[in-house]
């Protein structure tokens, strides 16, 4: 039987409020930035980063597993978008 070796992948998930969804944290920061002289900043959005390790036989498989987690649990698709990145691909 061909047993492919499982590799442990380090995965980063970025969760951000969806385009068009109000982001009170982002807009509060956006309003504060000019006071510090950062006049050119805009479209500030605050989300979160989730780092995890997952065992899979390829980077692509690891990404698929984590994307499934995102859909079913790690994000709320009503208000959030996610980006999944395998760090040690």
């Amino acid at each position: 039987m061909d047993r492919r070796e499982l590799v442990r992948f380090e995965v980063k998930v970025e969760v951000l409020p969806r385009e068009g969804i109000a982001n009170p944290e982002g807009s509060t920061i956006e309003r504060a930035l000019p006071a510090l002289g950062f006049e050119t900043a805009g479209d500030v959005r605050v989300g979160k980063v989730i780092r995890l390790q997952v065992e899979a036989d390829s980077a692509g498989a690891a990404k698929t597993i984590v994307e499934d987690m995102c859909k079913r649990f790690l994000s709320n698709p009503v208000i959030e978008d996610t980006t999944v990145e395998v760090l040690n691909a």
């Binding site: 409020p17 009170p24 709320n76 009503v78």
Partner: peptide, 17 residues
């Protein structure tokens, strides 16, 4: 109930935090 999909929409942080 919204997270469980039994009601539509979601509840996020209050405006003004």
């Amino acid at each position: 109930l919204t997270e469980a999909g039994m009601l539509p929409g979601a509840l996020q942080k209050n405006v003004g935090l």
